[in-house]
């Protein structure tokens, strides 16, 4: 049985409006970031994974099960949606217990799982207050508790960090890592790109309903050969390093940091750059605090692919 999330030539149209088109993906377990501008098709893709929408063409198989088999499918799925709404008149604890009972858990087990989920998202103290009275951050956390309370194998999260303070973000991302570490799929859509970068094993980039790139960030950047790689250097000798770097024929741009203690260099051939830089550093006896690639991040790739408009990359 395939343990992946598989999209086989999936398209979804809403009348004449394109949701996603010709998506072919085979996502292995781990934390997967879903990135794209508004209207890129992220929510459609998540609704397709969770069976809340059906493909107009193709099919979606999640860990060997199709959404039509609701009783088997939804035992595996936990979905923290973007919708900030709850059944009327419920406390956080009652909401979780009720949903777990609807899942088919016995009362004692439902209580046990609800308490565990509340504890995990730090909502035990507020569990007996009405959900309608919760703050934005608390509602976000109770939504997450609802998504994880039945211990799903596939966790789908639509903007899960919205409304959370920095400490809560750290706690919540730790939960995602725990799920990823035990072999679950964690599919995260977020506009907070540096956080997607920090927690994702792989990233799916979407734009205008198409998957424009998929893989780990360095791999995707490696495929973007038309974009010179940006390398940063932190050194007190930055101005003299900059002048020497211009002597290298493959360096296309050098820009000093505002504080003068570092620089950015662009080159289409990173391997040659690092080799030449080592030689220059030894010859010039430069003290280098740090050196590395500056654009193998989700944010940089997003800018290349979406803002600059490149497409058709996959690693």
């Amino acid at each position: 049985m395939n343990e992946g999330i598989v999209f086989e030539d999936v398209s979804r149209f809403y009348g004449d409006v394109l949701g996603v088109n010709r998506v072919d993906l085979d996502l292995e377990p781990g934390i997967i970031g879903l990135v794209g501008p508004n209207g890129a098709g992220k929510s459609t893709l998540m609704n397709l994974v969770t069976g809340l929408a059906s493909p107009s063409r193709g099919r979606v198989v999640v860990r060997g099960v199709v959404p039509n088999d609701a009783e088997a499918f939804y035992r595996r799925i936990g979905y923290c949606t973007q919708y900030d709404a709850f059944p009327v008149g419920m406390t956080g604890r009652r909401l979780l217990i009720s949903l777990l009972r609807v899942h088919g858990f016995a009362r004692d087990r439902a209580n046990e799982l609800a308490n565990a989920a509340l504890d995990r998202v730090g909502m035990t103290a507020a569990a007996d207050r009405p959900v309608d009275a919760y703050s934005k951050g608390m509602r976000q956390r109770i939504k997450l508790a609802q998504a994880i309370c039945h211990e799903p194998e596939v966790l789908v999260l639509d903007e899960p960090l919205n409304g959370l303070d920095p400490q809560a973000r750290a706690e919540v991302t730790e939960i995602f890592r725990e799920f990823g570490a035990v072999g679950a799929h964690v599919l995260i859509s977020s506009h907070i790109l540096h956080e997607v970068d920090a927690i994702s094993d792989r990233v799916v980039f979407l734009d205008n309903g198409y998957v424009i790139a998929e893989g780990d960030a360095p791999g995707i950047k490696g495929e973007l050969k038309q974009y010179p790689m940006q390398i940063y250097v932190r050194s007190e000798h930055a101005p003299s390093i900059a002048s020497r770097l211009f002597e290298l024929g493959h360096v296309t741009e050098v820009r000093l940091h505002d504080d003068g203690a570092g620089l950015f260099a662009r080159t289409p051939d990173a391997d040659r750059f690092f080799l030449a830089f080592n030689r220059l550093a030894l010859a010039g006896a430069w003290h280098v605090d740090a050196i590395g690639t500056a654009d193998e991040t989700v944010e940089a790739i997003y800018n290349y692919l979406v803002v600059d408009g490149a497409a058709g990359v996959s690693s």
Binding site: T50, G51, L52, A70, E71, A72, F73, Y74, R75, I77, G78, Y79, T81, Y83, D84, A85, F86, P87, V88, L99, V102, H103, G104, Q146
Partner: peptide, 13 residues
């Protein structure tokens, strides 16, 4: 109320 998904996401026919 945008709360139907809670039911539709349960392993329930």
């Amino acid at each position: 109320r945008r709360s139907l998904h809670f039911y539709l996401l349960a392993p329930l026919r």
